[in-house]
């Protein structure tokens, strides 16, 4: 088994070898080792992608917008991913983004996971008909099937920033809270008189 450190180093060097700058290659190394830890085929997808770009100049969107596509070629998942994390504030404002014609879309996942961490919100991604959720760079929730896939191209990738909202009702919360109070002890008069701050007026 290759260690995470080996995956990082080899992915970084390979990225440099196919023409990315060292700084971008460093990001690639980190991303591929992180996605492999979630069990997604980062190395397989990266290897396949790098084989396809030997004779073309990969490109990301010029700037991040609601709808992103290039006229004459497909989007590079690495430059697109970098654009997302470098412009995370704009992405958070736009909230829902679409990418048309994106090569090797699984390579976008670690960038989106990082994006989720940077803006502090969960993000839902749809890669054509598959759904994945990124959770603050802590985990990637994906259908088990996606883990072994090599996806050459996605016609449409959508990214939805999920607002930080509870997944439960107020009623449920109150019921649970009430149960939790059963661990508390009633204060005695003595403790009220002698506890911290006793005897002071707080509106002084």
């Amino acid at each position: 088994m290759q260690s995470s450190s080996e995956i990082n180093t080899i992915s970084k060097r390979a990225a440099r070898a196919v023409g990315y700058s060292w700084g971008v290659a460093e990001e690639v190394g980190k991303c591929i080792s992180s996605i492999e830890m979630f069990g997604i085929s980062g190395v397989e997808n990266l290897n396949n992608y790098f084989k396809t770009i030997k004779d073309i100049e990969p490109e990301g969107p010029k700037q991040i917008e609601k709808n992103n596509k290039l006229n004459d070629k497909s989007l590079c998942p690495i430059y697109t991913g970098l654009k997302l994390i470098d412009n995370y504030k704009s992405v958070d404002r736009i909230k829902a983004l679409t990418f048309i014609n994106l090569d090797y879309p699984l390579l976008l996942l670690p960038f989106v996971n990082k994006l989720s961490y940077l803006i502090g919100k969960r993000i839902e991604i749809s890669i054509d008909d598959m759904n994945v959720e990124c959770n603050l760079n802590i985990c990637v929730l994906a259908d088990h099937q996606i883990k072994s896939l090599i996806i050459k191209k996605a016609n449409t990738v959508t990214i939805n920033i999920l607002e930080n909202e509870d997944s439960f009702s107020n009623k449920t919360w109150n019921e649970l809270y009430k149960m939790s109070t059963e661990t508390f002890v009633e204060e005695t008069e003595l403790s009220k008189q002698t506890g911290a701050g006793a005897g002071l007026r707080d509106n002084d």
Partner: peptide
């Protein structure tokens, strides 16, 4: 914004870090 600089100067990203 630094994101604009990085877009145009990808070769120096490693030292910006």
């Amino acid at each position: 914004e630094l994101s604009i600089f990085l877009e145009e100067n990808s070769d120096l990203r490693h030292v910006v870090r």
